[in-house]
Structures are given as structure tokens and as C-alpha cells.
Design a protein around this nucleic acid. Structure first.
Lengths: 221, 221
DNA sequence: ATTACTAAAAGACGAGTAA
DNA sequence: TTTACTCGTCTTTTAGTAA
């Protein structure tokens, strides 16, 4: 079995050029690059050699090291993992949270024509007059913050009846089978643990949701 | 400082989807995936949480884990290393070896017109009648084997004067400033620790090489 | 079934030494 | 300077226990 600290060492040698030919190094220089003592670096080299992940030719003042085919394959497997992680990235976030009661303001705003018009344009549906408030679980807050990096669509504010209505930002998402939108008032960038959801229908009715029920919000850019 | 075994753990969680939202897991399932005891896996999760590389929400029957921004950055740094390693790959091998005496057969074959004609076509120069034999250092053998994966160009055999001359394969390379070719008789795929080099000039004369002198062969596909 | 903690065993680390 | 080895220390691991 190849240990993670061995792989780290192998990778460092690869970065130094160990895949393209032999690399000249000393235990000290390698140890320095890896933040460890020369002794430990030397032991790493020995164990990697024993596992045929690299070959060495030791000289009185250092050693020539080359990564073998097996070593390359090990690195490639690791590389493939990272590719999988970052390639499919952005293909979808998924946040879990529980339904909570809002202040009922959502219903009022969702009935204002300039907002409705923009939502239709941006999300492709006429929002049900009312919002569903979801409190994101503590462990989901990290993913919640990541959402801020995505491309939110601006909703313009407007003036009507001598009153100013603020702007907002909006992101398409999905709850179960229903296409929805996350709507965040203003332009604040800082995360909130409560997300306000709009949908073409009443989600509470459609899925029989009560306060405390858990739902999953899926964001697929 | 983030240790390699912690990064390994973080990567595994990322593969499970920890970058896209929370992942449900238990110490046991994670330990199984990482080949370690549940206790160790639990400790990993705790230390990763302490370093704010992930956040957890522990429940009586498992935990929801999400990778934080810091965690993602750590993974991204690692990914960048691997990209560097494999992107520039194939940009050049470099083999070290020492000059040895051949059997003098090279001179004869290099003077045969059908061979010469093909070398001119493939390598772009008329080979000096004679080959330089290089014994690859033991530590370079791994890189030597890697050469077999590259695209060698076939040299056709022929019949002349009632005698059959075998084929060979050939790969462009460089020794110091001189463009050269590695030539391997037949179609054997198994590595040899001696490489036969042809060049437009006598490399021995051009660089004053004697037996035992070290040279570097650079292959840049 | 979990997580978290404790304690004994195992293993890794790095200083020191020799070649 | 190297590498390679030994040895004492310290960390890490895992089994066992409790919640």
C-alpha cells in the first residue's frame, strides 16, 4: 500500500522533473522541499525504491532519482481523482436546510409587478406570491458561501407610489422537481444562513411542507 | 501546516462530493474508503475541522461534512501541482549515460544507401558513418523504458546483394547542440541499457568524447 | 448503529555516528 | 559535503469503553 506521505514525496520529485529523466537531489534538499529532516527524506526515498516507484543511483554527494512506470501510474491515479473533483465542478451544489417561517413580507414583494416581470424574464416562471424560507444547516454554510461565487442575476429596484423598492440578486435552483429561485435582497455579499426561495407554485402546498421539514436545494449552473 | 494524510482525507471527501455540498458519512465509511480505522478517520475529520478545511454537523448516526473555501484552496494547490507535472509531460526526456565502444558495425550499416536515404527523410540529416554507443546509467533505465512509449519512426529493411538487412526504429534526439537520432535495430520492445546514436557529424570528434565520458541525451517530441 | 475519549502498542521522527 | 544506520523520544494508531 502506498502511503500519502510517500505520494507527496513522489509528487515533489515529479514536479522537480522526475518523470522526464533523472533528477539530482540530496536528502537534505528533498527534505527542505518537503519540510522534513534529511533522515526522513532519505527513508522516504528508500521505501519508494523498495516499492519500485522510483529508481536511484546513489553517489557520494547526492543521488540521481527517476520515477518508474509504477510511480507514474500512482501519480496518474491521484491526478485522475483531482480531475474528477475539479472538472465536474460547478455542475451542481446541493444545500440541505429546514423550512422556517418568514415574516410574510415575501408575499407582498412578490406581488409587485416590476419584480414579477423581472423574475419571469430571469427564471422563466411567474412566481407564486410568497417565499419559502430555508434555514441552512450549520454544516452547509460552507457550501452556502460558495454560492456567492456563482453568477447571480441582478434584479433592479424601482420607485413606485413615491416609495423606493430595493434591488436584489437571484439564482436559479431546484427543489425536488420544481424549478425555483433563490432571492437575496440588496447586494450584500456576506452569507446568511437563511435562504429565501421563490417558485411558480406554493412549495409548502405542493410538497406539504411544514416548519422544520428538511429540504434539499439544488443549484445547477 | 497541512499534512499529506489530511490532504488525502480531504481529497477523498471531495471525490465524494464535499465540494458541491454536504456529504453524509460515518467515521467507519470514511475509514473504509481510506484504508484506516474509524478512530483514525474520526481524528482526521476533527483535525481538518480545527484547521477550518471543512465543517461538520454531527448527528447520532453519522455526520454531514462540507469542504470550506480554505479546504478547496488546499485541494486546488495540489491539483495545480499535478497539472504542472502532467501537462508539460512529453515536453522532453533527458537521459544520462557514458560513452562506450561499440563493435564498429554501425559504421558499415550507416554507409548503406537505403538506410541513409531513410534517415535523411526521417531525421533531416545525412548520418555520419558511425554510431556513438551510450550506456545508460542504472538510474536512467526507468526513463529509458518510458522512451518506448514515444512515437518511434520505423526504418524499413531491404534486400541487397542477396542479403537481407533488417528494419529498425528511430527517434530524434539531441546531444548538446547537435540534433541526433536514437536507433534501435529490429522491433524489440524490451529495454536495453545501451543506446546507439547517429548524428550528422562524428560526436566523438565534435565534443572530444572518450570512453567513459558522460553525456546527456535529450528527447523532445 | 454513531461519536468521543483513554490508554497501550506500534511506528515514525530526527539527533548522533560512521563511512 | 553525502548516505545509511542505530537509538531514544515522541507521535500516531487502534482497541476498548462510555455516552
Amino acid at each position: 500500500m502506498i502511503m500519502p506521505e510517500e505520494l507527496q514525496c513522489l509528487k515533489t520529485i515529479a514536479v522537480m522533473g522526475g518523470l522526464k529523466g533523472q533528477v539530482f537531489l540530496s536528502s537534505q534538499s528533498l527534505g527542505g522541499a518537503l519540510g522534513m529532516s534529511p533522515q526522513t527524506a532519505a527513508r522516504r526515498l528508500q521505501s519508494l525504491e523498495r516499492k519500485i516507484l522510483l529508481t536511484r543511483s546513489v553517489t557520494p554527494d547526492g543521488q540521481y532519482v527517476t520515477i518508474t512506470r509504477d510511480g507514474e501510474e500512482a501519480l496518474r491515479r491521484e491526478y485522475a481523482d483531482y480531475c474528477r473533483v475539479f472538472e465536474l465542478e460547478g455542475s451542481g451544489f446541493s444545500l440541505r436546510g429546514s423550512v422556517i417561517s418568514g415574516l410574510g413580507e415575501g408575499r407582498y414583494y412578490m406581488s409587485l409587478e416590476p419584480y414579477v416581470r423581472q423574475f419571469v424574464q430571469v427564471l422563466g416562471f411567474e412566481p407564486f406570491p410568497g417565499t419559502l424560507n430555508i434555514r441552512i444547516e450549520p454544516s452547509g454554510l460552507a457550501a452556502r458561501k460558495r454560492l456567492d461565487q456563482l453568477e447571480w442575476i441582478g434584479i433592479e429596484g424601482f420607485v413606485a407610489d413615491g416609495r423606493t423598492f430595493g434591488g436584489a440578486r437571484c439564482l436559479a435552483c431546484r427543489i425536488r422537481a420544481t424549478p425555483c429561485g433563490i432571492i437575496i435582497p440588496g447586494r450584500s455579499h456576506y452569507p446568511d444562513d437563511v435562504l429565501e426561495i421563490i417558485a411558480p407554485v406554493s412549495l409548502r402546498d405542493a410538497y406539504n411542507l411544514a416548519d422544520g421539514d428538511e429540504v434539499e436545494i439544488e443549484v445547477t449552473p
